[in-house]
């Protein structure tokens, strides 16, 4: 068992995990986790509660030592944990001063702009801000450190729908401007379309799927039709549902073949990210996989 945290050489890869594993006592929270995240991507880390998302991010951020395998990140990392930590007795301005002192690179304007955008008062102690405002302070400090890779654990939790949309848009603006790579974990899968372009799906500490989101979804299709034990076209059934006289299949199409044509009573529709994630998670729960 070797444990190495090494810098990634290839400029095109921002984050790399090689057979990564982390154990708490005798229970593996993460196992055999291997993937590469290209630079400049916005990756969504998705999975059920307890799937190992936080463990993976903490290991990748270098805050937790893996028990197996290797992790590498190209450049500087900023990590905002789920608790969005701030010092209660520091004012917002003092939090920024701390950011400036603790980071080798610091962009005060960038951090300040973020806070201004969300109307966070600089002179107020963090302990007297709302949960959502505290989150904005934590984001501002992370953005101010000009990271090459920004990791956010559940950044959208506890934000109202408008703030979720605004944080997402601002974040994507920062990505467009700086070319940084983002890895964010979330349960709000339905809001990820067009936001994330890369998916990492974890279940029970293992990586179920990973890769370019559009390519992944394009390889899947939903068929609905008369009750049947098998779908109307060849492929791996990810999920099958039967209700009364109707059957619905979510199918992974075989690679390198033209898209099958289904006729007659069958209808097909493209798969949304939500369809895909829910089907995969349901399949692992039923023990159809691994």
């Amino acid at each position: 068992m070797t444990t190495v945290v090494e810098p990634v050489e290839a400029a095109a890869t921002a984050v790399r995990a090689q057979a990564l594993g982390k154990r708490y006592k005798d229970k593996w929270a993460l196992r055999d986790c291997t993937f590469e995240l290209p630079a400049g991507r916005v990756a969504a880390l998705v999975g059920a509660n307890g799937a190992g998302k936080t463990t993976l991010m903490t290991v990748l951020a270098g805050l937790l030592r893996p028990d197996e395998g290797a992790a590498g990140v190209a450049g500087r990392v900023a990590f905002v944990s789920q608790e969005k930590p701030v010092y209660r007795h520091f004012t917002v301005a003092e939090m920024l001063r701390m950011g400036a002192r603790l980071n080798t690179v610091w962009d005060q304007d960038r951090a300040g702009r973020w806070l201004e955008r969300f109307e966070i008062p600089l002179d107020r102690p963090c302990g007297r801000l709302s949960g959502g405002q505290q989150a904005q302070v934590a984001f501002a400090v992370a953005i101010g450190s000009r990271p090459d890779v920004l990791m956010l654990d559940e950044p959208l939790a506890n934000l109202d729908p408008l703030a979720r949309r605004e944080v997402t848009a601002e974040l994507l603006g920062e990505v467009a401007e700086t070319g940084m790579t983002v890895l964010l974990s979330t349960h709000v899968v339905a809001e990820l379309g067009g936001v994330a372009d890369h998916l990492l799906l974890l279940a029970h500490g293992r990586l179920l799927a990973g890769g370019d989101l559009d390519e992944l979804l394009a390889r899947h299709v939903v068929y609905t039709g008369p009750r049947s034990d098998v779908p109307p076209a060849l492929g791996k059934v990810v999920e099958a549902r039967h209700r009364g006289g109707q059957s619905t299949f979510l199918v992974e199409l075989p690679e390198g073949r033209p898209r099958p044509v289904v006729a007659g009573q069958w209808a097909e529709r493209p798969v949304t990210l939500e369809d895909y994630v829910l089907a995969q998670l349901a399949a692992t729960r039923k023990g159809l996989k691994g």
Partner: peptide, 18 residues
């Protein structure tokens, strides 16, 4: 511009470029 679309529609710059 890509940045305008990112800011107004909340989509990823890679998506707009694509």
């Amino acid at each position: 511009t890509v940045r305008d679309v990112v800011a107004s529609s909340g989509v990823n710059a890679n998506t707009v470029l694509k």
